[in-house]
Write a protein that binds this DNA or RNA. Structure first.
Lengths: 190, 190
DNA sequence: TTGACAATCTAGCATCGCTAGATTTAAGTT
DNA sequence: AACTTAAATCTAGCGATGCTAGATTGTCAA
């Protein structure tokens, strides 16, 4: 009886090692370098073992993405000082979101760009995802009549800023001005 | 002398056939199905011939992306009625942008998501790219003090809306409300 | 007709995601 | 303690991929 518990514990540990290896490797060399063979070598097991944990490579990306969401929500909440004026809160969350995206590009890619098998805005949306959405809605709410739609738009604007800058489509040098703009528009907009 | 001209003409024709095949195939079966082998078969030449036209697969994606930009600019301009009030123009461009993105997801992906070797906001930015940016700046300008930054933000917001909806991150059913929001914010914002 | 050069193809390398089937390891039973 | 059975794990390989070296064909000018 204790045996099967130990095995399950070891199983979970190994799974965590796979996800951690994927994340580290992606951060260092990009997701293209994260191959199943390479991960197997990293955790010192043969390839097929990985498929006992994840259905396919995409599912590994999805596991890393979930970690990302688990971190993004709290990061956003932590960026707001207690009792800060709504407009400061809005600016701080916007800034924190972009900092998150630029400081961990591989993690952000897993969350929003790569195929990961994750599903959003559906009934089976995991709690971490709803929490992240909620962290943004909290600061958007004071300014908008329909918080849900406004938060979707807020998120989209931030995501667009992150992606276009990451791909060199817009000037990195003017990031601060764009943040000023998004905050100003939400503050006076709807 | 006419001979070398004919050869150059044939060369360009073949190149165009490669790009067209890539675009068609991507639209029908997704970019993952666009393999160099498959394209070679489509144009009835052997694989190495493709490498006489493009440095690598990414460059083929880039060629399709360029076609996309060449179409997006005029599409945006055409969406604005002559003499329309600035706010209508803004809404029409926003709508046209999203329609473009959703009606040609594979093309949009080539332009903004996939590695394509294209460079923006740099000195060597091709004319079509600048034209597309210009088409957006025209309708943003009336509302903003710094048109360049505002257009970057406008573009980013639209791109974010397109991407998050394409990935099912936000509710497709509320697209119209989000467009209303972005227009309202630009109209009253800065 | 021949020689040279360009155009094109065949064949193959290294790598990928993924899996069937053999093999080892460990657990439970006499 | 030896045996049986089942779980855990590995070896080996399939069918793809992007890309390329080297052979082969075709096309010109001398």
């Amino acid at each position: 009886m204790g045996i099967s518990e130990r095995k399950e514990r070891e199983r979970l540990e190994r799974e965590q090692r796979i996800v951690a290896a994927a994340r580290t490797l992606a951060q260092r060399d990009g997701w293209a370098s994260v191959t199943v063979r390479r991960l197997a070598q990293e955790i010192e097991y043969s390839q097929p073992v990985l498929y006992a944990h994840f259905e396919n490579r995409d599912a590994i990306v999805g596991a890393v993405a979930l970690e990302g969401f688990a971190e993004l929500g709290p990061t956003l909440r932590a960026s707001v000082r207690d009792g800060a004026p709504p407009i400061d809160a809005l600016r701080d969350v916007a800034t924190a979101y972009l900092v998150f995206a630029f400081e961990r590009p591989a993690l952000y890619e897993a969350m929003f760009v790569l195929p990961s098998g994750l599903r959003f805005a559906k009934s089976d949306t995991p709690k971490v995802l709803r929490d992240t959405f909620g962290a943004m809605m909290v600061v958007v709410e004071p300014f908008c009549s329909d918080p849900e739609v406004a938060t979707e738009y807020f998120w989209a604007a931030l995501h667009g800023l992150a992606e276009l800058e990451r791909h060199g489509r817009i000037r990195a040098s003017h990031r601060a001005e764009r943040v000023r703009l998004i905050v100003a528009m939400f503050a006076t907009g709807d």
